[in-house]
Design a binder for these strands. Structure first.
Lengths: 190, 190
DNA sequence: CCTGCGCTAGGATGGCCGTACTAGTCAAGC
DNA sequence: GCTTGACTAGTACGGCCATCCTAGCGCAGG
């Protein structure tokens, strides 16, 4: 199959980004994980590491966006609860060293031009996530302004919780934060 | 002066960690920034890169903790406002590619043993920050449980906002999130 | 059966990095 | 003023990495 090797390489890159970040990720690792040959890199990704990383981040961004879009509309508090339940498994992974692939590509690691292009990929992904959450929150009954603010807040909590839980080696920071977030949402939106 | 070179090296390392992360940071860069000689590394830091990075992260952790401890006690809402005002300049730096040095060392980049030791440094720093915020929030009138939950939430927002703002290249995500956070705090704690 | 062609396969290369080592500097103390 | 020891300076080395290159394989169409 044509796109098979390419797909496996992208998936392996997403994984490597989550665990090691851009600078810490190595082709050797991606090739081992994906079972691809060294020569496959520059066949499928003539742009080299930059292109591979950018495509991996973009794909991860789209996958997450799709997951967020599938969240059920409810009242705002119920939606926040659904969101927190959805991301808990993701945050749990970060307790064992994983992280957010999109966040990883925001860290400068190469030439300025490449950094800028990767940052743009990340910005696009985050904006898409925020827009999706905003839409769902609007459907759930919030004003567009409130929805946009809460969407950004939820994303910040998601990214921050991953950092705290990776450091702690447990999901406990997430659970504490999730309780507080729900408590706050209840006081404000019901 | 004895500790002068050493200090400059640590400061340069904190800077490099913020911009590049552990794997992306190079000794060459630290030496250039600090004006130290190559031989100085293993004189001051016999443990090599791991020791230098660990000390830099620990120092940054203590510095931030001291800043947090200096926040004025007030009512909870006022304290949240003070916290947000305090971290806004930090988040602004992340819009230009900087980040959190403590968060940076949570990303695995070397041998498992070294990773674990760095993660522990980060966990210690984050716990110290959370404890400090919890204490201040308790003084501001919250129950210990509420204070602990809100402290973790504020830290997650801080770390998450840095990620979002670094991707966006602006402090706009922070501002949106800060408004919402204050709004939520007002509804719950006043 | 042959001939391109998409793709795989794996090694070669040049560069950068962390590490290590040796020589040199400077100041204090006897 | 000479020794001693802390520190600086610069260089050498071994390893890993991204990159590149040249064969080789399998399968179209003729």
């Amino acid at each position: 199959m044509a796109g098979d090797t390419r797909d496996r390489m992208i998936e392996a890159t997403v994984d490597a980004l989550r665990r090691r970040g851009v600078a810490g990720m190595s082709f050797t690792e991606v090739l081992r994980e994906s079972g691809a040959a060294r020569g496959a890199i520059y066949h499928h990704f003539p742009g080299g590491k930059g292109q591979l990383v950018a495509e991996a981040a973009a794909r991860n961004g789209q996958d997450v966006r799709a997951t967020l879009a599938a969240l059920p509309a409810a009242d705002p508090v119920g939606f926040v609860a659904s969101f927190l339940a959805l991301i808990r498994p993701v945050v749990e992974c970060s307790a064992t060293g994983s992280g957010c692939a999109v966040a990883a590509v925001t860290i400068a690691s190469g030439e300025p031009a490449e950094n800028a292009s990767l940052r743009e990929v990340a910005a696009t992904a985050f904006t898409a996530w925020a827009d999706t959450l905003t839409e769902r929150l609007t459907v759930s009954g919030l004003t567009p302004d409130d929805a946009a603010g809460l969407a950004t807040t939820l994303l910040a909590l998601l990214e921050g919780a991953q950092v705290l839980c990776r450091a702690a080696g447990s999901a406990e920071p997430f659970d504490r934060m999730a309780d507080t977030a729900l408590d706050l949402a209840r006081s404000r939106y019901s």
